[in-house]
Design a protein around this nucleic acid. Structure first.
Lengths: 137, 137
DNA sequence: CTACATGCAAATCGTTTGCACTCCA
DNA sequence: TGGAGTGCAAACGATTTGCATGTAG
């Protein structure tokens, strides 16, 4: 893994940012100082920084929309490998009240996601860290 | 809002599903009994069901990828209107341990998202429920 | 008759990929 | 000289939209 001006610029912009910017947003910002930079490079740099472990994606459940007709209060186990989502119920977690010192923020709901590997995926790849999705169920 | 065979079929499939299906997945399932159904109708029906309040999107922070260079343990306030994401720290939440009776699931991290409206959006629309994104900061 | 819902195809948007080119080790 | 990184453009996949048609009130 190599240190390049582009990666440094992206990382700097990310460090300075307070707002969890999207790749496009970072592009807009970094390009001011480095007009030659391309959007594809932003994506590649973010991937590099993430693999390096100095940045991460804000927990996104999955790349697709997912729907639920279960309106009960519940939480989700999300397998980061095969993207399976399993409900789980937990009174303790339900009891979480949004902290009150949220200034002006009006909370509507609290959702807890436990990220990890489902049984099958955990067994399947004891140590390997493959990229991409896997068929599971 | 109107009850149609298509909407009923989509809702039924969603009720029976245990796995938080994506629109495409629902399409595959519903089409078995209603081959004329189109994918676009699935999307429209899901939108209708969501507006009706009988279904919901599994909490997706935003439609875009969002990155963070802050690796400290922290949680997120997500404004569902303007998509702003604000960090917050809370020792109580940090103390959440993934329940152990998760069968084979291997938990790596727990993330808490408080969904709601940021101050500006809450003020802006006292009662209206507009669709779409808003510029905020 | 009118308003709304459907199905299709085209358009859009974010993200990824292939490739030629450059740069430094 | 070769492997890695960049920039561009094309490809891709999910979602949305426009529009002609159908249908129920």
């Amino acid at each position: 893994m190599n240190v390049t001006p582009q990666r440094v610029a992206v990382y700097r912009a990310l460090l300075q940012a307070e707002d969890h910017p999207s790749p496009e947003e970072l592009y807009r910002r970094v390009r001011r100082r480095m007009p030659s930079l391309s959007l594809a490079t932003i994506y590649k740099a973010l991937d590099a920084l993430t693999r390096l472990g100095v940045a991460r994606e804000v927990s996104v459940i999955s790349e697709r929309k997912r729907y639920d007709a279960n309106l009960d209060r519940h939480h989700h186990l999300v397998c980061t490998r095969c993207k399976k989502i399993v409900d789980f119920y937990d009174d303790g977690l339900d009891a979480i009240a949004p902290p009150r010192r949220l200034s002006a923020f009006v909370a509507h709901s609290v959702s807890v996601q436990v990220m990890g590997l489902c049984g099958r995926c955990a067994q399947d790849t004891p140590r390997s860290r493959q990229k991409g999705r896997r068929a599971c169920n």
